[in-house]
């Protein structure tokens, strides 16, 4: 474990908790893409199937459990509890256009052709594009609440920190996982446009508005 990965994980955890609290306290999921949250729940489910078979550390196991519980709780709040506030008209990104190609790629490019490894690879590829419905929704509505922007900043920042973690691990212990690195770079690049707007706008207290 290194500081980049630890801060990255905490940023990820903060993002997940922040979104859950926002939906819960405002009792509304307006402006939130349910599809992205469904994709994140799928990402955690397919990535952490080894939760019961391999033990890395208390930290690793407890974070996996927290991520999975929060992901399903968020999906539950969006699609069940506060379903009436879910914005169907703007959450229209065709998620199947992400899941199907990513599923095919996971079969073609992976480290090991075993069910657990293919599902892990699927999860890595899917996570890199899972935010697209949310970014698409913001570009359609033309704006995002500031809390949603903070959520996206933490979420985007976590994988950017992971890239630094991978650089650190490569030079300090010769570890590298090309699949995770390439997917992580794609994921972080998708946030660049948002990062620019966040830094130039939200920090100064303006509302974030993506070019529609």
């Amino acid at each position: 474990m290194n500081v980049f990965r630890l801060v990255g994980d905490l940023s990820h955890l903060l993002a997940i908790i922040m979104l859950l609290k926002k939906i819960w306290s405002s009792r509304s999921c307006a402006g939130i893409s349910g599809k992205s949250q469904l994709l994140f729940a799928l990402v955690f489910t397919t990535r952490y199937l080894d939760l019961f078979t391999s033990f890395i550390s208390v930290y690793n196991t407890s974070m996996k459990v927290i991520y999975i519980l929060c992901a399903y709780a968020t999906v539950y709040l969006i699609y069940v509890k506060f379903k009436a506030t879910y914005d169907h008209n703007h959450d229209t990104f065709r998620a199947e256009f992400l899941v199907v190609p990513v599923g095919g790629l996971a079969f073609l490019v992976n480290h090991d052709f075993t069910p657990l490894e293919i599902l892990w690879t699927f999860s890595i590829y899917l996570e890199s594009v899972a935010i697209m419905p949310q970014l698409f929704m913001i570009s359609k509505t033309g704006e995002a609440e500031s809390i949603t922007s903070h959520y996206l900043f933490c979420l985007g920042g976590y994988r950017a920190l992971y890239i630094i973690n991978w650089l650190y691990r490569f030079y300090s212990e010769g570890f590298f996982d090309l699949i995770a690195i390439v997917a992580g770079c794609v994921q972080t690049i998708l946030y660049c446009d948002f990062f620019y707007l966040y830094i130039t706008k939200v920090i100064y207290g303006q509302k974030l508005s993506l070019p529609a």
């Binding site: 080894d50 690793n60 996996k64 991520y67 480290h111 090991d112 892990w120 992971y162 570890f175």
Partner: peptide, 10 residues
């Protein structure tokens, strides 16, 4: 080496 057998990252 590529350590893909045991994914130790979240």
């Amino acid at each position: 080496h590529v350590n893909e057998d045991m994914h130790d990252e979240l």
